[in-house]
Design a protein around this nucleic acid. Structure first.
Length: 421
RNA sequence: GGAGAGGUGGCCGAGCUGGUCGAAGGCAGCCGCCUGCUAAGCGGUUGUGGGGGUAACACCUCACCCAGGGUUCGAAUCCCUGCCUCUCCGCCA
């Protein structure tokens, strides 16, 4: 969420941001309501002040056993007026708040301007796509040959866009989680295992609600949501807290299942593991001082890249442009892994700096050493990595002519085998 | 699922027969004094958010005693709803 004062005082910046993000939001109504709200607030507060002063006087008179009925009558009227003001204020506040909750973050000046994913900019590449002396297969074909992926039965159990891993496939999934968590904790990230069902406040805190309800699985009675990413529960660990400067940066890593409706992606990636309603992911989350956040974004992105490098998977780093960047993010790098089955780089991680956008929604602040008052922290997160897609990348990149798959060196102790066949 | 207790400032803890309560007292923190150092002791001070104000402070004001409603001239205190915590019984991985 943006600061309403910031919006009021920086209309041009906001307008440009909305234009670059392809958002058709009019600020005029917001500014009008904001103006009304502030002038009403002032009047209402003056009346409250009057009531406070006179009520005290009434108390004094009663102790002295003097008559205060005329003052009480007057205050009845004042109280009625206050109620009327409050009702109006409440409406205006709901309007402006609703507006702010639906307003996206302002992209950092280093974010390339562009209208969709074609405007994204490649920053660097690592690794060379392997040259095959045979026609590389898709991961679902490899999975079928090795009998480690079973989509038919998964759809019987749950439905479309669910998967079932089996044998070495299931073990590979577990090996990847452990490998990633071990690597992350060795870098100083604290491992947490949070709830994967959360309340509305948490979803609002990180920005999924109110705007993206359609993308979430919801449980009613009682009302809960399944998390679409560990970002939600982990960032909300510190909701409504004031942290000490010396505690920062706080770094967490978490493995969780993730659940997404994938509404509106009907034609996309219908086969295979790429786009599932349920998938596993290891996430990195950081809480940092404002002046450190862009530097920390680089460090967090490097941590995610390190996993790909240790697995020997070729990838590239892409800076998302203003038209493709997420609602809450001020800057995002996507990591895209090479998939021989598709002859394409596909997203496997997304690392973002949210600056104070989530912190303001979730009310996560910190106090500077020796200074009065509080400031919002900056929050960041990134996948390290999406497990299912990593499994896809391994199957496709390490496949052999005979249909077997070589286990990357880094995973052999976790897998207890060198080849899946 | 049944029965009960409770949620107050960084922490502990009073207030809860409605008024002078942003809230006693203690601890912790900060500033100063004192003893040759340390400890103890003495004095002062220390919440968050909004609005106004200032060059910036100061300052003025409103709100906040789990959350949301209600009663009242006035609510931390009374009433209702929700959430959470704890104890006992039952049930269960």
């Amino acid at each position: 969420m943006l600061d309403s004062k910031f919006v009021r005082e920086n209309i041009e910046i906001i307008k440009e941001s909305l234009r670059n993000r392809n958002y058709a939001l009019s600020l005029d109504e917001f500014l009008k309501f904001e103006e009304q709200r502030r002038s009403l607030l002032k009047e209402a507060e003056e009346l409250r002040n009057r009531r406070n002063v006179v009520s005290e006087e009434i108390g004094r008179l009663r102790i002295q056993k003097q008559d205060a009925s005329n003052l009480i009558d007057e205050m009845k009227l004042v109280s009625d007026k206050i109620k009327a003001f409050d009702a109006q204020l409440k409406m205006l506040e709901e309007n402006t708040n609703e507006f702010l909750l639906n307003m996206p973050n302002v992209p950092h000046h280093s974010v390339p301007v562009g209208k969709d994913e074609t405007g994204n900019v490649e920053i660097r590449r690592w690794g060379e796509p392997r040259q095959f002396d045979f026609e590389p297969l898709n991961h679902w074909d490899i999975g079928a040959i090795l009998d480690i992926l079973d989509f038919d039965r998964a759809s019987k159990i749950a439905g479309a866009r669910f998967s079932l891993t089996k044998g070495a496939g299931a073990k590979l999934e577990r090996a990847l989680m452990n490998f990633m968590l071990d690597l992350n904790t060795a870098k100083g990230y604290t491992e947490v295992f949070p709830p994967i069902i959360v309340n509305k406040e948490s979803m609002r805190g990180t920005g999924q609600l109110p705007k993206f309800e359609m993308e979430l699985f919801k449980i009613s009675d009682p009302e809960f949501y399944l998390i679409p990413t560990a970002e939600v529960p982990v960032t909300n660990i510190h909701r409504n807290e004031i942290l000490q400067e010396k505690e920062l940066p706080i770094s967490y890593t978490a493995y969780t299942p993730c659940f997404r409706r994938e509404a509106g992606s009907y034609g996309k990636d219908v086969r295979g593991l790429i786009r599932q309603h349920q998938f596993n992911k290891v996430e990195l989350v950081k809480f940092v001082r404002p002046e450190d956040s862009y530097h920390e974004l680089e460090s967090l992105t490097n941590a995610a890249e390190d996993i790909l490098q240790k697995l020997g998977l070729p990838y590239r780093v892409v800076a998302l442009c203003t038209g493709d960047i997420g609602f809450a993010a001020s800057k995002t790098y996507d990591l895209e892994v090479w998939l021989p089955g598709q002859q394409k780089y596909r997203e496997i991680s997304s690392c973002s700096n949210f600056i104070d956008f989530q912190a303001r929604r979730a009310n996560i602040r910190f106090r500077r050493e020796g200074k009065k008052g509080t400031e919002f922290v900056h929050t960041l997160n990134g996948s390290s990595l999406a497990i299912g897609r990593t499994l896809v990348a391994i199957l496709e990149n390490y496949q052999q002519k005979d249909g077997s798959v070589v286990v990357p060196d880094a995973l052999r102790t976790y897998m207890g085998m060198e080849v899946i066949k």
